[in-house]
């Protein structure tokens, strides 16, 4: 059980770190493209690669952002309720969110499968086989779904979810 907990937390951390690296990749790609233009060189497909990195930076970050309480929700009702009903409402939220995330992941999987089967390639100059960058959507979607399910089960078993607020984020919030 402890091993599972540890590997799940590692999963969220690693995916977040990968997302951050995608952000750095966006920066580098754009800078290289710009410098290439200044010096009369060409970097074909830079815009597409930056787009894929953008997708990576988003999808891989979803679960990490969830656990750190970054995703926005309207919590007026949640805050107003006493503990028991609040827990039920939270179960509904995590349950529905997990269902949506799994639904998305399922269709994302088939979407990528058909991209691979149709041999779909990027229409821009990079001509990348699209199933490769699109896979981050399946991976990221699955990690988000896992994180939501993880929280849902913890909530049912232990009575509270595992979302926290980042201390640095709070430091400017106070």
């Amino acid at each position: 059980m402890k091993a599972l907990r540890k590997s799940l937390d590692a999963l969220y951390l690693i995916s977040g770190a990968l997302a951050a690296m995608c952000l750095v990749a966006i920066l580098l790609l754009i800078v290289v493209q710009m410098v290439a233009r200044w010096t009369g060189e060409v970097f074909p497909g830079a815009a597409s690669y930056a787009g894929y990195a953008m997708a990576g930076a988003s999808f891989l970050a979803f679960a990490n952002a969830l656990n750190r309480g970054s995703h926005i929700r309207v919590s007026i009702l949640l805050n107003a309720l006493p503990d028991g009903p609040k827990r039920l409402l939270d179960i509904w939220c995590f349950g529905l969110a997990a269902a949506i995330a799994w639904y998305f992941t399922y269709y994302a999987y088939w979407f990528v499968y058909w991209s691979w089967k149709f041999n779909e390639v990027s229409q821009a100059q990079d001509a990348t086989a699209l199933w490769i960058p699109q896979s981050v959507m399946v991976v990221g979607g699955a990690i988000l779904a896992i994180a939501l399910t993880d929280n849902l089960l913890t909530l049912i078993v232990k009575g509270e979810h595992r979302l926290t607020r980042d201390i640095v984020d709070q430091s400017f919030g106070e």
Binding site: A47, A50, G51, A55, A57, Y107, A108, W110, F111, M137
Partner: peptide, 21 residues
């Protein structure tokens, strides 16, 4: 499901969006 994923991929992998992060 297909429509959902097609749209979400197109909007999330957009180059114009990179200015935001």
């Amino acid at each position: 499901g297909d429509a959902m994923v097609t749209t979400i991929w197109a909007s999330s992998s957009s180059w114009t969006l990179t200015a935001l992060p």
